[in-house]
Design a protein around this nucleic acid. Structure first.
Lengths: 209, 209
DNA sequence: ACGCTAAGTGGACTGCCGGTCAGGTTGCCG
DNA sequence: CGGCAACCTGACCGGCAGTCCACTTAGCGT
């Protein structure tokens, strides 16, 4: 962000060092036993610096996740089909889910740490800590694509269900065993089935409020 | 459990007091900021007692969850249709998912605390901390029922996806706003669609290993 | 080149928590 | 009633999130 006030060079350097150190730690240790002090030490900076730059554990993990998911976001908003806006919704959805599985598979440790961090640090009650930007964007995208094809379904809720399933502990563990292809295939099956299902025969069906 | 070794009366009393106090705390405070010390104090026992009876935070939450899910388990293994073993798999599955949504909706705080606890306390590496009995049973049941009707699907993975979705933060938050009927309806739609989908036209499809 | 200033930094400090343990207490059986 | 083992307790330990303020230093104006 090129604002009027430029960021000092050492600040930039330290931010990168901290992010880098966090990645390194995440790659070699269980995410829940990584302390902010360890991160600071590994990055070669003081603990205060880490907190100064990222606020708390969740801020740190969130920053890292945003960086990791940046490429996918770009591909979705500006890229070529099948991910980009020029493909038909159905193809976009399936392609996006594949890509999301990929991102998740390559960042399982981070995801676990983030899920943990979301509930670890308590915010003032008027803040919504659970909605980190990546999740929000993914949900909005999935939800929109589902709604585009099946306005009769509760797209928002289905998107939550799908996304939630992807981030669950059990699935993360599956991914750790290298089953990402299996996951992607089943996800495809599930979503395809939902999109192709007959339009809700029972009377009380329909999209939510 | 009528074993040969009987439990001392005060031990039983304390166990109940602790569980009760935990429920009380869970009802009035954010689950992640309930400490074991608070539980002990609220139950009127020493901190050591809590750890003695339940091992750690996860043990406590797990015990509580098992108690809460006991009725559903009974209904599934011994009860009448549509939950019990005398109903057809499809009906059982849909009924079970409805019931599970209900249990989850009535225990969202506990679920959140449990999910949090799973990652909070680290076990020795040879223990599998993530698989608490309730989740294992639910997964096995869903998985079996899906497999019974659609042997061509990857029932185990689909069960993980479904169950994971139900426990996700976003869905828990939805439930907090009283949207459990909406959730149950969409879940039904999704599962019905999966069960009724045409049997995987593409060549590489099929159940996983 | 140089000094000024505010952004940036570090690490000691506070408060709290999970988990342990040695010693005192108490239900229960014979 | 006496003895034993199960049980309870709360002080204690190691460690961590997050705060705070004195100190450093990059970048700019002159």
């Amino acid at each position: 962000m090129t604002e009027g006030r430029r960021e000092r060079a050492d600040a930039v350097r330290n931010r990168r060092a901290i992010l880098l150190a966090t990645e390194e730690l995440l790659a070699h240790h269980r995410p829940e036993k990584i302390s902010m002090e360890q991160v600071a030490a590994a990055a070669g900076v003081g603990k205060g610096t880490v907190f100064h730059r990222f606020g708390n554990r969740m801020g740190l993990m969130r920053a890292l996740m945003e960086e990791r998911a940046y490429a996918l976001r770009e591909a979705v908003t500006d890229g070529p089909p099948p991910l980009g806006p020029d493909a038909c919704p159905r193809e976009r959805l399936l392609a996006f889910l594949d890509a999301a599985v990929d991102v998740i598979a390559r960042n399982k440790g981070l995801l676990a740490a983030l899920g943990h961090a979301v509930t670890t640090s308590q915010q003032p009650p008027d803040e919504r800590p659970g909605t980190h930007p990546v999740h929000a964007f993914w949900h909005a995208h999935i939800s929109t694509l589902i709604a585009a094809q099946r306005p009769d379904l509760d797209a928002e809720l289905l998107a939550h269900l799908l996304l939630g399933g992807l981030q669950s502990d059990a699935v993360l563990r599956l991914l750790e065993r290298g089953e990402s292809a299996r996951l992607a295939a089943s996800l495809r099956t599930l979503v395809t089935a939902a999109l192709d299902a007959p339009p809700a025969a029972d009377p009380e069906a329909g999209a939510g409020a």
